[in-house]
Design a protein around this nucleic acid. Structure first.
Lengths: 217, 217
DNA sequence: GTTAGCATGTAAGGAGTTACATGATTTT
DNA sequence: AAAATCATGTAACTCCTTACATGCTAAC
């Protein structure tokens, strides 16, 4: 089949469209800003991906008659766009929902690598509890490997590199250790919930899993 | 000229070879593990880059007669490899040193984006004090933009997304804020040193700039 | 004696960005 | 009326990974 379609981009698109239908333009903003997964996803990769998903029947497009959803839209003209140009709103099809569940159910190594973890975590609300736990634990061991690697580098090269390189490693190590602590909290929280298991297909977890009781401030 | 040669890879290679000559194999390990800049740089991009730098006269190769630098090398046979196969040690040429200074002196936006900052920071020891400060401040405003962006997303979507997405944003925000605090310490430290300016060409900073007085446990 | 690690390279292909091309709508 | 933002799309190009191809040396 098609050419592109990196698994992560596909997952992000299907996952976001599962929440609410939207334009490609809005999808890109969400993927870039809200998920923060791709630093700045370009249209050059998003639109072709959308066309492929459409061809595969995983998403459907509808022509938007309401015009762009600008900030002050409600106040001014209700005049329809009269279809001068193609404004498309994409939504998830039944096949698309199936595919999304399939992707979320895999829970393999791709789900805990740097590029995959964020996307998978963002859609934990639709992910089975056992898969969630597996992904969190996979991510933790991945980061623990990195901890060891930096620690080793730090011991090996101590005194042989300048203070800036040392500081970079020190800060990197602390960042990774901090993320491991965060994962430990999440895993503990998941294990508590695990005593009351739930089905993935019907109204999956929202408000039940309450990771970390710290107030934000 | 040549095809590839992404600026960051070139900088990493020249910067590391400035510290000490080494094999391509060792370079890859340093770039992957020690600098941690590229998650896992492949030979497929490193060796071609090396060939281009060689052709450009920025680095030079010498045939290694001592054999691979294995962990227990010193103990066993001192028998030379007799040149059966090409084992190459690369070192920086005079032109390469010039080019390295040129790259380190730019201090433009590329030096404070996600992919560039780590590499540039690792070679701060060879970077002019004013450029160091500029890069640190550029990085800080970049991260402050991101802080605002996440905070905005958090306010906009509060109550509309599930607890996992909220937790992802909360953790992301804290990570960025933590890095900003780190940068503030570094900037303060640089400003203190700035009262005694120094020339870049002669024995640039090592031990003078002492970022953050925390002991490392 | 076989596995793991050292060491160098190439060809094919994937994944994404940049730059280009177009046009409506909203804000200043 | 100009500038910013919304909105969609394509073609060329860059950079990198994967898989292949080869061979030595150390450790178990």
């Amino acid at each position: 089949m098609g050419r592109n379609k990196s698994a992560m981009l596909e997952l992000a698109v299907l996952g976001l469209l599962h929440r609410t239908p939207m334009h490609g333009y809005e999808l890109r903003k969400q993927i870039t800003n809200v998920l923060g997964l791709f630093r700045a996803l370009s249209y050059g990769s998003l639109y072709p991906c959308l066309h492929e998903l459409l061809a595969a029947g995983l998403i459907a497009e509808e022509h938007d008659e309401t015009g762009p959803a600008g900030p002050a839209r409600a106040a001014s003209s209700t005049r329809p766009r009269s279809g001068r140009r193609s404004l498309k709103v994409y939504r998830l099809t039944a096949d698309g929902k199936e595919r999304l569940q399939e992707l979320l159910g895999e829970g393999g190594p791709a789900a805990w690598e740097d590029d995959g973890f964020g996307v998978h975590f963002a859609f934990f609300g639709q992910t089975r509890a056992d898969v969630r736990l597996r992904i969190l634990e996979g991510r933790r061991s991945r980061l623990e490997e990195r901890t060891e690697s930096i620690r080793a580098a730090l011991t090996r090269t101590r005194e042989r590199v300048d203070s800036y390189t040392l500081e970079l490693h020190r800060h990197g190590l602390e960042s990774v250790e901090r993320e491991v602590r965060w994962l430990n909290e999440l895993i503990a929280s998941e294990r508590q919930v695990a005593s009351v298991p739930q089905v993935a297909s019907e109204r999956p977890a929202d408000g039940q899993a309450n990771p970390s009781d710290k107030e934000s401030t």
